[in-house]
Deep mutational scan, measured.
Amino acid sequence: MEVRTIKVFTTVDNINLHTQVVDMSMTYGQQFGPTYLDGADVTKIKPHNSHEGKTFYVLPNDDTLRVEAFEYYHTTDPSFLGRYMSALNHTKKWKYPQVNGLTSIKWADNNCYLATALLTLQQIELKFNPPALQDAYYRARAGEAANFCALILAYCNKTVGELGDVRETMSYLFQHANLDSCKRVLNVVCKTCGQQQTTLKGVEAVMYMGTLSYEQFKKGVQIPCTCGKQATKYLVQQESPFVMMSAPPAQYELKHGTFTCASEYTGNYQCGHYKHITSKETLYCIDGALLTKSSEYKGPITDVFYKENSYTTTIK
């Protein structure tokens, strides 16, 4: 009895394709271990004539594949690729409408935090270190965002349907971005203890939790000093293409032309909904596939993004 075979390709990165001759009487799992086709788990399936010449994702289970996976995804987590594939199996079914010149995501599976993050990423200057993220990001900007969303979920250790947080998501993504040249110098002034300067680099240099107003941050924000008295913390120097200011959701007025974009969060910790506000020729609110415009805006804002380049204080 002759062994019926077909020729397929296996890959971990969709760049390096490895030619395989597979036995049609055995499952993919018996031949390769966990195997995925377009995100779908085909591990328990036997090869079919229609699979001839198709590319299958496999887990990096030998040295060659491990090197290829690390170079593309910059992670050695053995569960990463499987999590990416199972997320992709959902995100490829989502709709990605162009809204006001940006790629958004039609609401499904509690994905409003991903839509808000995706919209924000198209408006701030950011370059990702893992080629996987950078490639998928370019495709997302062009309207094909399924891979990018699935990668975000995998890097953030999230599953489809789980509630997510924009600030946490951005923080994970910033860790995989090139923020080497970003720098922030802060000064804390206390009447009792004097003053202390701190220099922050990388992710810490672009994120701040405690106030939404970048102007206020430049002037000074009140913080408790270690001595128990009130101290003032203010920005001395900022070198970065953008800054992200966050605070627990509270009524906040966004003035046209003073910011790049913002995240609105309605609801409580267990259950809520994100919308995205962007400042173009007027203010726009993007909620999944829905767009509304207004000249002014007041609502429960939790993150505001500002364009920056270089700032030095005039406070002496």
Results as ranks from 00 to 15, higher is better:
Glu2Gln: 09
Val3Asn: 13
Val3Ser: 13
Val3Leu: 12
Ile6Cys: 10
Val8Leu: 10
Val8Tyr: 03
Phe9Ser: 13
Phe9Trp: 10
Asp13Pro: 03
Asn14Cys: 09
Ile15Ala: 09
Ile15Lys: 13
Asn16Cys: 10
Leu17Arg: 11
Leu17Lys: 14
His18Asp: 09
His18Ile: 03
Gln20Thr: 11
Val21Phe: 14
Met24Asn: 12
Met26Asp: 15
Thr27Asn: 13
Tyr28His: 06
Gln30Val: 11
Gln31Pro: 08
Gln31Cys: 13
Phe32His: 07
Pro34Trp: 15
Thr35Ser: 11
Tyr36Arg: 06
Leu37Gly: 07
Asp38Tyr: 10
Asp38Phe: 10
Gly39Cys: 14
Gly39Thr: 13
Ala40Lys: 14
Val42Gln: 09
Val42Phe: 15
Val42Pro: 09
Thr43Glu: 08
Lys44Gln: 09
Lys44Ala: 15
Lys44Asn: 12
Lys44Arg: 14
Lys46Pro: 12
Asn49Arg: 13
Ser50Arg: 12
Ser50Trp: 10
His51Ser: 05
His51Leu: 06
Lys54Glu: 11
Lys54Phe: 13
Thr55Leu: 04
Phe56Val: 10
Tyr57His: 13
Tyr57Met: 13
Tyr57Asp: 08
Tyr57Glu: 07
Leu59His: 10
Pro60His: 07
Asn61Asp: 08
Asp63Asn: 12
Thr64Asn: 12
Arg66Val: 12
Glu68Pro: 01
Glu68Asn: 11
Phe70Pro: 03
Glu71Cys: 11
Glu71Val: 12
Glu71Arg: 09
Tyr72Phe: 09
Tyr73Ala: 03
Tyr73Gly: 05
Tyr73Lys: 00
His74Tyr: 07
Thr75Ile: 05
Thr76Phe: 11
Thr76Lys: 10
Pro78His: 13
Phe80Ile: 06
Phe80Trp: 04
Leu81Gln: 04
Gly82Asp: 12
Arg83Gly: 01
Arg83Val: 05
Tyr84Glu: 08
Tyr84Cys: 05
Tyr84Phe: 12
Tyr84Trp: 06
Ser86His: 09
Ala87Asn: 11
Leu88Ile: 04
Leu88Trp: 08
Leu88Arg: 09
Leu88Gly: 06
Leu88Pro: 07
His90Gln: 11
Thr91His: 01
Lys92Asn: 08
Lys93Ser: 10
Trp94Ser: 02
Trp94Gly: 06
Trp94Cys: 05
Lys95Trp: 13
Lys95His: 10
Lys95Ser: 15
Tyr96Pro: 03
Pro97Cys: 11
Gln98Cys: 10
Val99Gly: 10
Asn100Ala: 15
Asn100Pro: 03
Asn100Ser: 11
Asn100Met: 14
Gly101Phe: 13
Gly101Trp: 05
Leu102Lys: 05
Leu102Cys: 00
Thr103Ile: 13
Thr103Ala: 08
Thr103Ser: 02
Ser104Gln: 11
Ile105His: 06
Lys106His: 10
Lys106Met: 08
Ala108Gln: 13
Asp109Pro: 04
Asn110Ser: 08
Asn111Lys: 05
Cys112Tyr: 01
Cys112His: 09
Tyr113His: 06
Tyr113Lys: 01
Leu114Lys: 04
Leu114Ala: 01
Ala115Leu: 06
Ala115Arg: 00
Ala117Phe: 06
Ala117Cys: 12
Ala117Met: 03
Ala117Asn: 02
Leu118Asn: 06
Leu118Ala: 05
Leu119Thr: 02
Leu119Glu: 03
Leu119Gly: 10
Leu119Phe: 00
Thr120Pro: 01
Thr120Val: 09
Thr120Gly: 00
Leu121Glu: 03
Gln123Trp: 07
Gln123Thr: 05
Leu126Arg: 03
Leu126Tyr: 01
Pro131Tyr: 08
Pro131Lys: 02
Pro131Arg: 05
Ala132Phe: 06
Leu133Trp: 03
Gln134His: 10
Gln134Ala: 13
Asp135Leu: 07
Ala136Ser: 10
Tyr137Gln: 00
Tyr137Met: 15
Tyr137Ser: 07
Tyr137Thr: 06
Arg139Trp: 09
Arg141Gly: 10
Arg141Lys: 15
Arg141Pro: 03
Ala142Tyr: 13
Ala142Lys: 14
Ala142Trp: 07
Ala145Gly: 08
Ala145Asn: 03
Ala146Met: 05
Ala146Arg: 05
Phe148Gln: 06
Cys149Phe: 05
Ala150Pro: 03
Leu151Asn: 03
Leu151Ala: 02
Ile152Asp: 07
Leu153Cys: 07
Cys156Met: 03
Asn157Gln: 12
Thr159Asp: 11
Thr159Leu: 14
Val160Asn: 02
Val160Met: 04
Gly161Pro: 01
Gly161Ile: 07
Leu163Ala: 06
Leu163His: 09
Gly164Asp: 04
Gly164Arg: 03
Gly164Glu: 01
Asp165Asn: 01
Val166Ile: 00
Val166Ser: 04
Arg167Ile: 02
Arg167Ser: 04
Thr169Lys: 01
Thr169Leu: 08
Thr169Ala: 07
Tyr172Pro: 04
Tyr172Thr: 14
Tyr172Leu: 15
Leu173Asn: 04
Leu173Thr: 06
Phe174Met: 05
Gln175Ser: 13
Ala177Asp: 03
Ala177Val: 11
Asn178Glu: 07
Asn178Ala: 11
Asp180Ser: 11
Cys182Ala: 07
Arg184Cys: 01
Val185Ile: 12
Val185Lys: 08
Val185His: 01
Leu186Val: 15
Val188Gly: 02
Val188Thr: 15
Val189Arg: 10
Cys190Thr: 01
Lys191Tyr: 11
Thr192Asp: 14
Cys193Ile: 03
Cys193Trp: 04
Gly194His: 03
Gln195Val: 15
Gln196Asn: 11
Gln196Ile: 11
Gln196Pro: 04
Thr198Ser: 12
Thr199Gln: 12
Gly202Asp: 04
Gly202Tyr: 03
Val203Gly: 07
Val203Cys: 09
Val203Glu: 06
Val203Trp: 11
Val203Lys: 12
Val206Ser: 05
Val206Arg: 02
Met207Leu: 02
Tyr208Arg: 01
Tyr208Asn: 01
Gly210Cys: 09
Gly210Arg: 09
Thr211Ile: 10
Leu212Lys: 01
Ser213Phe: 01
Ser213Trp: 06
Tyr214Gly: 01
Glu215Gly: 07
Glu215Val: 03
Gln216Glu: 14
Lys218Trp: 05
Lys219Arg: 14
Lys219Tyr: 01
Gly220Cys: 03
Val221Thr: 05
Val221Phe: 05
Gln222Lys: 12
Ile223His: 10
Pro224Tyr: 11
Cys225Tyr: 03
Cys227Thr: 02
Cys227Pro: 05
Lys229Thr: 08
Lys229Val: 06
Ala231Thr: 07
Thr232Glu: 05
Thr232Met: 11
Lys233His: 11
Gln238Gly: 03
Glu239Leu: 09
Glu239Asp: 10
Glu239Gly: 01
Ser240Glu: 01
Ser240Gln: 03
Phe242Met: 06
Met245His: 02
Met245Val: 09
Met245Lys: 00
Met245Gly: 09
Ser246Asp: 05
Ser246Gln: 00
Pro248Lys: 11
Pro248Ile: 06
Pro249Leu: 01
Gln251Met: 15
Tyr252Asp: 08
Tyr252Gln: 01
Glu253Ser: 08
Leu254Ile: 05
Gly257Glu: 02
Thr258Tyr: 05
Phe259Lys: 04
Thr260Cys: 13
Thr260Asn: 06
Cys261Thr: 01
Cys261Gly: 00
Ser263Ala: 14
Glu264Asp: 04
Glu264Gly: 08
Tyr265Ala: 00
Thr266Phe: 01
Asn268Ser: 12
Tyr269Glu: 14
Gln270Ile: 10
Gln270Thr: 13
Gln270His: 13
Gln270Ser: 07
Gln270Val: 11
Gly272Ser: 02
Tyr274Asp: 06
Tyr274Lys: 03
Tyr274Cys: 00
Lys275Val: 10
His276Met: 07
His276Asp: 00
Ile277Phe: 01
Ile277Leu: 01
Ile277Val: 03
Ile277Ser: 01
Ser279Arg: 04
Glu281Arg: 03
Glu281Pro: 05
Thr282Val: 12
Thr282His: 06
Thr282Ala: 12
Thr282Cys: 08
Tyr284Asp: 07
Tyr284Val: 11
Tyr284Leu: 13
Tyr284His: 05
Cys285Trp: 11
Ile286Val: 01
Gly288Gln: 03
Leu290Glu: 14
Leu290Gln: 11
Leu290Ile: 13
Thr292Pro: 00
Thr292Glu: 09
Lys293Glu: 12
Glu296Leu: 09
Glu296Cys: 13
Pro300Phe: 15
Ile301Leu: 03
Thr302His: 02
Phe305Cys: 04
Phe305Glu: 00
Tyr306Pro: 03
Glu308Phe: 01
Glu308His: 01
Glu308Trp: 09
Asn309Ser: 15
Asn309Val: 10
Thr312Leu: 12
Thr312Tyr: 13
Thr312Gly: 07
Thr312Ala: 09
Thr314Val: 13
